[in-house]
């Protein structure tokens, strides 16, 4: 990889940190406005927010300001310290995910060699925050929601990790940048024009990854932990004002990060067919390409969310353990056989 700018470590990290601090809240703004507000409204034959700013684009800014002014209520019985820490832990997990998301040959905060392994590790930190929130609220709904969330997140974490393994076997690396390069330099039956996006060879892994990601994000077919018709909101029921907004931001920031991971691993990432993989122009065009792919993947995530009814708790666990995990193990073995034989 070429070095775009040669800056001392502290300056470079400072710039990247500033960019990330600006980008992470923006990602959840984009997803919530575009999909949760507008797309959901159109799919349900409504208009959605349309008063605040042109086409309602400023609605979320207005809501953030509203949340800022809300009183911060700690229930009398709550474990105050844990109660306050929980949303920060969840947000921290989201932040750490953005460290490795690549948007160009050099446009990445830190190109860790453990790449995807690191992503899986930090994304599971949010379970801890959710369990903390559910437990410390001293509320029956919150406790049930927190336990359900923990049960669901650990059950779907396994298919998620095992699905990634197929990609790792094909690319022979955990590093996300090298996974992109492996796809860019790959060939489909000797034709290398569009590289070899792993969605073609790892379609089963892609499906498993998307289903498990949907469950990790507690989006609708898997939203038992926050089921508003029975738990009124689950683990974040007692949270008000800005602490609630932190959970909300983390949820959609993580959705964006998972969509980014899926597009890096299965759709070819920032690479554009016809360019060299270390062409400097990709640092400029790459983020745009990534954004397009991320929005495409998010569209599917939210489309499923708006379409399917909720799974029951037993169906949900059964689906993870009896269908997804054996399937993803079979995928690993099959990919391994193909890798060694061909």
């Amino acid at each position: 990889m070429t070095t775009l700018l040669a800056l001392p470590y502290w300056q470079e990290t400072g710039i990247k940190l500033g960019l990330a601090l600006a980008i992470i809240p923006t990602t959840s703004l984009i997803l919530v406005y575009l999909f949760l507000f507008k797309m959901m409204a159109f799919m349900q034959s409504r208009l959605g927010p349309n008063d605040t700013g042109p086409y309602g684009t400023l609605q979320l800014i207005a809501e953030a300001i509203k949340f800022l002014q809300k009183e911060d209520i700690h229930p009398a019985q709550a474990d105050r310290r844990v109660f306050r820490m929980a949303p920060v832990v969840v947000l921290g997990s989201t932040f750490l995910l953005y460290v490795i998301l690549p948007a160009g040959p050099d446009a990445v905060v830190e190109n860790l060699d453990t790449g995807i392994f690191y992503a899986m590790a930090v994304s599971s930190l949010s379970v801890l925050g959710i369990l903390m929130a559910g437990w410390s609220s001293a509320n029956k709904y919150a406790l049930l929601g927190g336990l359900r969330a923990a049960g669901q997140l650990i059950a779907y974490e396994l298919p998620l990790i095992l699905a990634v393994m197929g990609v790792v076997i094909q690319a022979e690396t955990l590093n996300l940048q090298e996974i992109v390069v492996a796809q860019a330099t790959g060939e489909i039956f000797g034709f290398g024009g569009i590289g070899n996006p792993f969605i073609f060879t790892q379609f089963l892994a892609f499906l498993i990854f998307m289903i498990a990601a949907q469950a990790e994000l507690t989006q609708t077919p898997f939203d038992m932990p926050v089921a508003e018709t029975e738990l009124v909101g689950g683990f974040h029921i007692e949270y008000t004002g800005f602490r609630f907004l932190l959970f909300f931001m983390a949820e959609f920031g993580t959705a964006f990060a998972f969509a980014a991971l899926a597009s890096v691993m299965f759709l070819g990432g920032w690479w554009i067919p016809g360019f060299d993989v270390d062409d400097n122009i990709l640092n400029v065009l790459g983020p745009g390409v990534m954004l397009g792919k991320i929005l495409l993947i998010s569209f599917f995530i939210f489309w499923v969310r708006f379409t399917y009814p909720r799974l029951r708790e037993d169906q949900l666990q059964k689906f993870a353990w009896k269908v997804l995990i054996p399937l993803s193990l079979a995928n690993i073995v099959l990919t391994g056989i193909f890798k060694v034989v061909f």
């Binding site: 989201t94 460290v99 690191y118 932190l246």
Partner: peptide, 28 residues
Amino acid sequence: SYLTVGIFGVAAIAMAGAMLTIARILRP
């Protein structure tokens, strides 16, 4: 490279802290 990870972890806490401080000033 893992120092950067640490810095991001601290930044997440700092950002949440800053926003909660602003909220503390504004909210009743």
